[in-house]
Computed example of a mutant assay.
Amino acid sequence: MEVHEGSQKVRIGELPWAAVDPDRHPHRLGERETAGLRALIEPLVPDAKALHKRRWVDRKPVWDAIDPVTDLLVDRFGSWAAGWNWTVGEGDRDGGVVGSWCCALHSVSTPADTAGLVLEALQEWRDWLEELAALFAALTPSASRPPEPGHWEQACRRLVTLVADRSEAQSGWHGHCEQVLSWFLAHQGLPHDRAREIVTAAVDNSFESWRAPDQRVITTVSSRFARALQTPG
């Protein structure tokens, strides 16, 4: 799924940390701003309760409403907001962590209720990004001394375990897991391409949809992750 921010296509699964880092993209909505945003979302979505009483073909407007809603959020807040409906499992897109939204077919109801759910899902996604930012900071070694032995292994282990838990290790979860590991390395100052290269080599297709990684797999991936960081590249 693609949305447009100016002339740029936004693919949430490919966004670098700089595009979603909460410190670079402040986000707070007061009551008046929330009410204004709800008023903008409501005209973009159909009354699905009425549509569901008719033929299946009439449900197409439900799916067609997602892109305009995403466009609105991205235009207003930045590309990070494109993850608002990156839900657990097989929703509008595969392998995310948002639980309050399921998918267009099951989450779109009346315009008013749908607008409220969109904002709830957006906040859940934002909370996730802020949680990651806080964890990245906590896992960053002190500038005054080198990291302790095993630091990078433990960092990788914590992040993999967290993403597997939040995504319930459902369909496509490993894509976001690799992205989060890359985001962590970008937070440490590595260039985006180098971070992706390290993570791809470390994971090496070790993760699978619908299966949480066992401790042996996590240990293997974390060891490769740490070795790559300690190897000049």
Rank of each mutant, 00 (worst) to 15 (best):
A50I: 02
G116I: 08
A121G: 02
V74K: 01
E153M: 12
A18M: 01
R126I: 07
R157H: 00
R145A: 10
V57N: 11
T114Q: 06
H27F: 02
T34A: 09
A137Y: 01
E14N: 12
L117D: 08
L117V: 05
Q123W: 09
G30I: 14
W152K: 07
L132Y: 11
L73A: 03
L51I: 00
G30P: 01
L159Y: 02
R38N: 05
R93Y: 06
L29Q: 06
P61M: 08
F136H: 04
S107N: 06
G150L: 13
L122Y: 11
P46W: 06
D64A: 09
A81R: 07
P22F: 00
L117F: 11
R93D: 04
P16H: 05
D64G: 04
L51N: 00
S107E: 07
E14I: 13
D92S: 09
F77I: 01
D58M: 14
L44W: 08
A134K: 13
P22Y: 01
P26C: 00
L105Q: 12
S109K: 05
W17M: 04
G95F: 06
G30T: 02
A134D: 12
D64S: 12
R145F: 13
R157M: 15
G150I: 13
A115P: 15
A104F: 00
S79A: 13
P146C: 07
R145C: 13
G78F: 05
A134C: 09
T70I: 14
W80N: 06
D47C: 03
V97A: 03
W101A: 01
E124C: 10
C156L: 02
W17G: 03
L122V: 15
L44M: 12
V97G: 04
A104W: 01
C156P: 14
V118F: 02
D127V: 14
L105R: 07
V57E: 08
L105A: 07
A19H: 03
P141C: 14
E131P: 15
A138V: 12
D67G: 11
A143L: 14
L117T: 13
W56H: 13
A137E: 10
P22H: 06
T110S: 12
E120V: 14
G36D: 08
W128R: 02
P43C: 09
W125Y: 02
E14M: 11
C102G: 13
V97P: 03
R32T: 07
R32A: 15
L117H: 07
